[in-house]
Write a protein that binds this DNA or RNA. Structure first.
Length: 267
DNA sequence: TATAGTGTTATCGG
DNA sequence: ACCGATAACACTAT
């Protein structure tokens, strides 16, 4: 589910509904999601504090806490979602993608939760448990956020080597926020083959790639998620290129499932 | 029952 | 040590 647009939405949910509320309890019992912290460590660090600001870079979020407290790092992984609920369990914000059909208050896949003084809760709902909660996360390891990257940074990010361009777009240390679906849409818009070695990119191709990146991110953030991207809706066995009707090719690039138009995305 | 999957990272080989 | 490829992680939906 989550790429940059979904994570930005989750950040705004936190900013809108979870800031400046006193934390009275923390559920950090899931030692996989909360690794490397032992149970109770995050709880001890947060009880009595408030979240004061919610930040995002790429797909990573972090919240500052009151009283010189630690930074709370939040990553949604593949299936994570932020849900804020009222004391009675009614969902206030965050959507219900993974929880269709459940009764109010039945957050079966809640893997981490803050309880506020009024009984309301902020939860990481994550069926696959690939999301992550940690204190003082190493955000500095991430590349520039994909919404803010400059042409010079973009050029430097592409770097050299024989890596396929799609693999580089997915490298969060190079540029932060592009996931598998955004990458396919960007490459389709730039008419570039996902397996093209970054060594072979001309200056014009780099410029076209940056334009496509900005366009895809802008439209998918505005649309509310990567699902609104034209090429993403085309995925599947009968997918055809929206430009020319050619059956889409399917393969693996950068270790991920990849759909592309064999006619106009050339090496 | 078998398989794919929107993310990250440890590990392996060159 | 650097770079790139792959497996593994945990679990659900189809």
């Amino acid at each position: 589910m989550p790429e940059l647009p979904e994570v930005e939405n989750a950040r705004s949910v936190i900013a809108r509904a979870a800031l400046d509320r006193e934390v009275v309890d923390v559920d950090d019992h899931d030692t996989w999601v909360c690794r490397p912290h032992p149970p109770g460590e995050i709880r001890a660090a947060l009880v009595g504090r408030r979240l004061t600001v919610a930040h995002r870079r790429g797909k990573s979020m972090w919240c500052e806490t009151s009283g010189d407290g630690p930074v709370l790092g939040i990553h949604l992984g593949m299936s994570g979602k932020i849900v804020v609920a009222d004391p009675d369990g009614t969902e206030v914000d965050g959507g219900d993608y993974w929880e269709r059909g459940r009764a109010p208050g039945d957050f079966r896949y809640s893997r981490f939760a803050l309880t506020f003084a009024d009984g309301g809760r902020l939860m990481l709902v994550d069926p696959r448990r690939l999301g992550r909660i940690r204190l003082d996360p190493p955000i500095e390891l991430l590349g520039p956020d994909a919404t803010e990257i400059t042409p010079a940074q973009f050029r430097a990010m592409l770097g050299r080597g024989t890596a396929p361009v799609k693999a580089r777009l997915l490298d969060q240390h190079a540029i932060a926020g592009i996931g598998n679906l955004l990458a396919d849409d960007i490459l389709w818009r730039a008419r570039m083959h996902p397996g093209k070695p970054v060594d072979d990119l001309s200056a014009d191709e780099v410029a076209a790639l940056l334009r496509a990146t900005r366009y895809a991110i802008r439209t998918s953030v505005a649309g509310g998620g990567v699902h609104t991207l034209e090429i993403v809706r085309m995925r599947g066995p009968d997918a055809r290129c929206p430009r020319d009707g050619t059956p889409m090719s399917h393969g693996t690039y950068g270790g991920r499932s990849t759909w592309f138009c064999p006619l106009d995305q050339r090496l």
